[in-house]
């Protein structure tokens, strides 16, 4: 059924590939915020630099994406494991782990920060070998964990507490409540940035509604992850549009806070592993 869903998504993905879509920003926020388009995210990552508004990065020092796949300890025995044993179907429990790191400096408005980021993903799957030619082999996800972490060191006089950014997603098939085709599975997820005194909540934006560059609305059959919302005390201060690589920053913020928002946004946009939203 996963293959069927992917086939159904193909026309929509083809449409979005041909026409640039972006996250629709509510006018109540867009009228009080500045849109910054991030350049440098697409293309080669050698000598990669980002530029958005008054902010620009140094060359991004990208680490290798390390992936390890092995038959690891089983986290628990699922219904699938029991049924496969009863019917003597060949299967194995496989754990795939990936991680990567990157670091860079961000400059803007006379301010500078060093940013260190790390991503890690681990997925446990049951690999099923059906021995049927037309059916082939497939796998079933048991659990999946993704985490993104960044340390932002602002080199700002009288304002040098480091910020810690965390985004994570934790999916377990045992706790999944999805029953129907377009039901979204249950996963634990959270995101925040904190310097010990202040905390910015980072919330994933999932929506069925997109907007093309000509302003036309597009509706998807399922809610898709489209970006992130940054909040302080329940007020939105920034939006990251991951479709069109835009960053919206609230105008009424002071220079230092705007700089922190820009640092958080750039580190999130530079991620390489699958995002928090995917449980493949």
């Amino acid at each position: 059924m996963r293959h069927t869903l992917r086939l159904l998504m193909l026309p929509f993905l083809a449409f979005t590939a041909c026409t640039t879509v972006k996250l629709g920003i509510p006018s109540e926020f867009s009228s009080q915020a500045t849109e910054l388009h991030v350049k440098g995210l697409n293309g080669f990552t050698v000598n990669q630099k980002l530029v958005f508004g008054e902010y620009e990065t140094s060359k991004i020092k990208n680490g290798w994406v390390r992936t390890q796949e092995k038959n690891d300890r089983m986290s628990d025995v699922s219904t699938e494991d029991r049924l496969l044993k009863v019917f003597n179907i060949d299967n194995s429990n496989k754990t795939t782990s990936s991680d990567t790191k990157y670091q860079y400096s961000l400059y803007g408005g006379g301010l500078e920060a060093k940013i260190y980021s790390m991503e890690r993903k681990s997925t446990e799957e049951t690999d099923i070998r059906t021995q049927i030619k037309w059916l082939g082999d497939f796998s079933s996800t048991k659990n999946s964990r993704y985490s993104f972490s960044a340390a932002i060191l602002p080199l700002i006089p009288n304002f040098d507490e480091p910020w810690q950014v965390v985004l994570y997603s934790n999916y377990e098939a045992k706790k999944d409540t999805a029953k129907r085709l377009f039901d979204l599975p249950y996963a634990e997820e959270d995101g925040y940035a904190t310097n010990g005194k202040e905390t910015i909540t980072i919330r994933t934006i999932r929506t069925k509604n997109m907007t093309t560059t000509t302003g036309r609305s597009v509706n998807m059959p399922v809610k898709l992850p489209a970006g992130y919302e940054l909040r302080i005390d329940d007020g939105v201060i920034g939006i990251i549009d991951t479709y069109d690589n835009n960053v919206w920053i609230y105008n009424e913020l002071d220079k230092n806070t705007r700089f922190i928002i820009a640092s958080i946004s750039s580190s999130i946009l530079l991620r390489k592993l699958e995002s928090t939203e995917s449980t493949d």
Partner: peptide, 14 residues
């Protein structure tokens, strides 16, 4: 009889 996982929705915090 087997289950699949798709795009995820959240809440609950570690």
């Amino acid at each position: 009889l087997l289950c699949w996982a798709q795009e995820a929705v959240a809440q609950n915090k570690i």
